[in-house]
Amino acid sequence: MTVRVGAPPARPAVAAGTAARQRPPGVGWLVPAGVLFAVFGLLPIAIVAYLSLTSWNGLGSPHWAGLANWRGLAHDPEIPPGIRTTLLLTVLSWAVQTPLALLLGVWSAGPQRNRAVLSALFFLPLLLSLAAIALSWQALLDPNFGLPASLARLTHTPAANLLGDADRALYVVVAVLAWQWVPFHTLIYQGAARQIPQTLYEAAELDGAGRVRQFVSVTLPQLRHTVVASSVLMVVGSLTYFETILLLTGGGPGDATEVLPLHMYRTGFVGFDMGAASAIALLLVVVGAGLSVAIVRATGFARMDSEREGM
């Protein structure tokens, strides 16, 4: 589909007279999104900040507690291992998911028919509810009845205990999370890759660039902003997402996979210590927001430059 636009006219010498009509879209365009987000996103966070200064179990009214929850955070023995585990999970997830999603996305953006069929199949994990994903992976990894047991029977070796081994559990969790989220990021990369104009590739080919060279010098630079967007989503997601881990390992064995968001959930929704949970939540929000703003600034995402300026 081509955009029907007249040939760009030469700029009139007198531009001042048309200045009024060239005003960019005003803040009003932000209002619907802004109001919805303010009521259900920002206002709740403000209430959470307030709750972090109270002691409340969800019943009755919150009691003012000052900085007690924050001081308690500093002494909570679960926090330092939680921070370590969360960091490790974030880095590993990014390292595993980004190359996979990038390559798959670019590959499935190609015009061949079989690629379209396969990318439909790759899409399937996105359709499944969390309960299904967690249960099926638990069943697959069950050391007594799952894949390790079947392999053990075939090779006459003891069954690998994947989710139950404190050293290995986190890596298994990274793998399952990758299975769950790569389709999502692949979708983003696929959409972006399809938008890369063919002319760039044709020009590169004329210059004698092979497939790998084309990928490195055409595809990757064109996808720069998509990588940033996807990475921000991945990093912040690792700081806030825990449902899969909750259902897969419950944070165990011991606390080997107890990431901070899971600890927050357990403190607030199983232990009903809303004040302490709010403090952890606020901490996560601040760190996550800070990280996303930092990534966005550092990569120039916020400058809104186009990679295709001047074409």
């Binding site: 806030t240 968001p261 929704f269 996303s292």
Partner: peptide, 24 residues
């Protein structure tokens, strides 16, 4: 600033704010 606020929203886990959302 609006964009930064939306980016902040990325970092909000739904469980953290579910009780205020329920109240609202």
């Amino acid at each position: 600033t609006g964009l930064s606020l939306f980016l902040l929203g990325l970092a909000i886990p739904a469980q953290a704010v579910i009780v205020p959302v329920y109240l609202i």
